[in-house]
Amino acid sequence: MKKPQNHTTYDEMFSKGGEQAPYQLPYFLSCYYPMYLAVLDVLKRTGSSRVLEVGCGTGGLAHLLKDRYPVEYIGIDFSSVAVEKAIKRTNNPDSFLVADALSPELYNSNLSTIVCTEVLEHIPQDLKLVELWPEGTHCICSVPNYDSQYHERFFKDEAEVIERYGELIEIDRIDRIKKPILENIAISNLLRHLRWNRYRPGRLLELLGFGDFDKVGGWFVFSGQRPSRKSSNH
């Protein structure tokens, strides 16, 4: 049974750090690290200078950008707990805002890039959200290929991603990023699990990153530009 999507649900989740606490970990030890790297790759490729992150969570991606690709950055999230943790993580209170992503006043034509990862699958009004983003803005998003009690939807393949978002974003790239089996990808934790599963060859392969994308789960990271109203059917 899916949990209702509200502030309390996510405040509680972020307070606890999530299952096995990935939201508390340094970004480079989190299972989300491979996905963050995929986003970073697109930002570098497109030369983005200003980033608005919609659904910044506890600031993992923001921290990575601060360390590896400094840009003009603002992160928003509707969870005050997440924003507090993001500020503490990055020591940058001016870069984060508690806000409803469906508020039109958040978006203006001066935006260079909108990053929206681990968000669209959680909200019923995902299409309405994307429609608020200004035309010409470059967008980098992720959606999962696996279900969860928190997910409104998930996607089996690239065609389903294009079917849902292709008229709202001129998608020019979709990457499959496998989700690590472990929430904490520290070498010490990996070695511990390799030892525990030394007689389970299938599990060993998954732990080492050789598992099948459709089986172990992951994300479709897609990017492109918001079309002008003239070229959009919306």
Rank of each mutant, 00 (worst) to 15 (best):
S79W: 10
A101T: 06
Y10D: 02
L129K: 10
E135V: 09
V81D: 00
G209M: 01
T46M: 07
I74G: 00
Q149M: 12
P134W: 00
Y32S: 11
C116T: 10
I181W: 08
I185K: 09
G209H: 05
G59A: 02
E53G: 07
E12Q: 12
W196T: 11
R173C: 08
R153W: 06
I76E: 07
G136D: 03
G60N: 10
R176M: 10
T117V: 15
F28M: 07
P180L: 01
T117G: 01
H122V: 03
K230I: 11
R89H: 04
F155M: 05
R198E: 13
E135N: 11
K179S: 13
V143H: 06
Y36V: 02
K179Q: 13
Y33K: 12
Q125D: 14
L191C: 09
I74H: 07
S188T: 13
E131P: 03
E72A: 08
E167L: 12
P34K: 05
K3T: 12
G136C: 09
H63Q: 15
H138S: 03
L168W: 02
S49R: 14
A21D: 11
V161Q: 04
A186P: 05
L182E: 13
T117N: 00
L25V: 05
Q149A: 14
V161G: 01
F154Q: 03
P34V: 08
C141E: 01
P34Q: 00
T9G: 02
G75C: 03
G209E: 07
E131V: 05
A62C: 13
E206W: 08
I114C: 15
L194P: 04
I169F: 10
S142V: 10
G75D: 10
H7E: 14
A101Q: 03
V81L: 04
K66N: 13
C139S: 01
A38M: 11
Y36A: 06
P144A: 01
R226V: 11
L37Y: 01
K179E: 13
L182R: 13
S79T: 03
W219F: 09
I171G: 08
I171M: 09
F222G: 00
I114T: 00
N91D: 12
V83D: 01
G17V: 09
R195F: 08
N197S: 09
D147H: 06
G202N: 15
E84I: 05
F213V: 01
F222M: 07
G18R: 02
D94H: 15
E160H: 08
Y32P: 05
E12C: 05
G211T: 04
F14T: 05
L102Y: 09
E118F: 04
S231N: 13
Y32G: 06
I177S: 06
F78D: 02
D212G: 00
H193Q: 15
H7W: 07
Y150N: 06
P93K: 09
F28Y: 15
R203D: 07
E19L: 09
S49C: 10
T117F: 04
S188E: 15
C139P: 05
R203C: 09
K156L: 14
R89F: 04
E84Y: 10
Q5V: 15
K178G: 05
I123R: 08
G55F: 05
N184T: 06
V71K: 02
W196H: 14
V221P: 01
P180D: 00
D11P: 13
S79F: 06
I174C: 11
P201F: 07
S103R: 14
V119K: 02
R153G: 01
Q225Y: 13
E167Y: 02
T46L: 13
H63G: 07
L191F: 12
